[in-house]
Design a protein around this nucleic acid. Sequence first.
DNA 1: CAATATTATGACTAAAAGTCAATGACTTTT
DNA 2: AAAAGTCATTGACTTTTAGTCATAATATTG
Lengths: 200, 200
Amino acid sequence: MNKRQQSAQNTRKKLIQAALKLLKEKGFKAINVEEITKEAGVAKGTFYIYFKRKEDIISEYSRYPFKEIADELKNKQDTNLIDRLTHYFYRFMECVEFHGINICREWIKDVIDPNNINNSQDGQKWVYDFEMLKEILENAVQNNELKKDTPIELLTHLIISQLYGMMTCWCMSDGKFEPLDWSDKFCKIQLNSILKEFLI
Amino acid sequence: MNKRQQSAQNTRKKLIQAALKLLKEKGFKAINVEEITKEAGVAKGTFYIYFKRKEDIISEYSRYPFKEIADELKNKQDTNLIDRLTHYFYRFMECVEFHGINICREWIKDVIDPNNINNSQDGQKWVYDFEMLKEILENAVQNNELKKDTPIELLTHLIISQLYGMMTCWCMSDGKFEPLDWSDKFCKIQLNSILKEFLI
DNA sequence: CAATATTATGACTAAAAGTCAATGACTTTT
DNA sequence: AAAAGTCATTGACTTTTAGTCATAATATTG
């Protein structure tokens, strides 16, 4: 990587960090592009080199950690399906808690809105979560953890809706409960209820 | 009601109808206030007589139907708890389907965002759903349908998260499944799983 | 019908998103 | 090592749109 590429990467990082900081403090709507660039120590126009639209910076760091968690899950084939999914739920909530409620809000807005397709991504972001979970369930069928006639697609939707339901509910209540606590108390029960008739 | 009040009410209705129509077509962000007023056949300034901010028109028709469903549920004391809640879920999904995905999206954004408190409402909108469900569960404890030590608050969160999880998931997937189908297939199972250890 | 009150208007302001020609630091070519 | 070429960066500029407000039109009241 030459000096130019390094500088570009650095600027991009600075922008993301600046936006992250301001977002945690104020929320997305309350900050403008000029503030972000000022915080990052670059000119306003620079923002638009890296992001087509103001919103695109959201996808950037909201997408990344979840992708990481998903990859982590794929490589963890030692435990049973329920435990693996419980672990995924826990890590998801950990991530939610780490990023905080304002970012969580923007992330929900981002994933439900088809207009917010990030320039660096080639489709809807949700597809990644969906495909990843689907793959896990498909593998479970292969490994005889789940019955052959398991309605994979349907269960995937149901499982994802647990995660997003919790997130949405958390944001609605303005952070009235602990995501991790929630994960501890309910995820296993919910997952068992969803999967029980298909588990072998 | 005199001519003035009637005219005012009419203008308000026209604005809501116009916004509704455009929203279904394009989504909230893609339309501007001038478009709404043009569609309604009034001047731009008129919008701001009825709504403090552009966003406030969303709360207007997103809040109303759910309130109605909740009231309907309260008056329906003849069936058991699970059936009553199942009915609530079904009506909720009916409403979601009726309004369509773009409005559903705006509604989610609206309820998760503390900045979007409607001028005509005196608090967070979510509180209504929450209090309403909570009341139902409390009544169930009174009527010996639920155990005395039922963690009402927690269960309320959990039940609401089912509804919003489904909605969010539906919007994410850009309407890949039928909300009513979903309600038919899973609500009862989910509700039973959530409530089973507390049912008498 | 004159005085008063209310609703409606649209030109205007303010703020912020997004553009782009000019710059100069870095890279490649000769 | 000098010239040519590339590309990240800049910030003044344009465009868009939310939101305001003095004025006009219309209705009510006494």
